[in-house]
Structure formats: C-alpha cells, structure tokens
C-alpha cells in the first residue's frame, strides 16, 4: 500500500513541478521507464511469491536503469543507438510480460 502511495506521490510531484529534462537526457527516458517498469513488476511478483526484499528491489531498479542507459549511450556512440534501444526494450519487455503472467497466476490462479 505504502509503495503504491509513493508511486502516486511521485507522479503528482512530476506533474506539478514539470521539471525540465535536459536534451541530452531525453533519449534515455523511454529506456529508463521500461527498466523501471521491469523492476516494479519484478517486485510485485516477488511480493506475491513471498520473497520480496527491499534492498534487492532498489538495487535491481537502479542497476536496470543504469545498465539500460549505458547500453543505449554506447549504441549512440557507435551509431547503433536505435538498434540497441530496441534490444533493451525487447529483453525487458519479455521479462515484464512473463512477470505479469506470473502475477496473474497468483492473483486469479488462471
């Protein structure tokens, strides 16, 4: 419950403050969002599995974002930024879907 409220608070703060994103940071935003979603769904599944760990959650979120951004940065430097972005999105997308499938099995046993 508390993390859900935190998420909502973060969204409200973002909408109210409307912080300016520097141009150089903008290509990494979608990747960071995907990485964050992966961490969130992983955490929800871990809670349902009964093995949630707060440190693992934080570390997995941060490392997801940093590694995804680093891969895209590297791709940008090598001229294959969009391909590597696609790779990151595919890998994290597959994980998100299978995590969501596991969550669904827990909640609806379907």
């Amino acid at each position: 419950m508390i993390p859900a409220l935190g998420l909502l608070a973060g969204i409200v703060i973002g909408i109210v403050l409307k912080p300016d994103v520097p141009i150089w940071l903008q290509p990494y935003l979608p990747i960071a969002v995907i990485a964050a979603l992966d961490a969130v769904f992983g955490a929800v599944r871990a809670v349902l599995d009964g093995i949630f760990d707060d440190k693992v959650f934080v570390v997995s979120f941060l490392s997801n974002v940093v590694v995804a951004a680093f891969i895209v940065y590297l791709g940008d430097q090598l001229g294959v930024g969009s391909q590597l972005s696609t790779g990151v999105i595919v890998v994290l997308g597959v994980r998100i879907f299978s995590n969501v499938a596991a969550i669904r099995r827990h909640l609806f046993s379907a």
Partner: peptide, 28 residues
C-alpha cells in the same frame, strides 16, 4: 521470515522516484 516489509523507507523512496520518472517522461 523469507520476505521483508514492503513499506520500508527505501522502497517508498524508490517508488516516489519511479513515479517521478513516469510523470517526467510522459510530460516531456
């Protein structure tokens, strides 16, 4: 117990950060 609490400060801060990220990405 095999799991820790969901409502720790660390988790809440990260949740706020993720919410902020989503809002900023959508806003930009």
């Amino acid at each position: 117990p095999p799991h820790t609490s969901v409502g720790t400060v660390l988790v809440t801060l990260t949740a706020i950060l993720i919410g902020l990220l989503l809002a900023v990405a959508a806003g930009s």
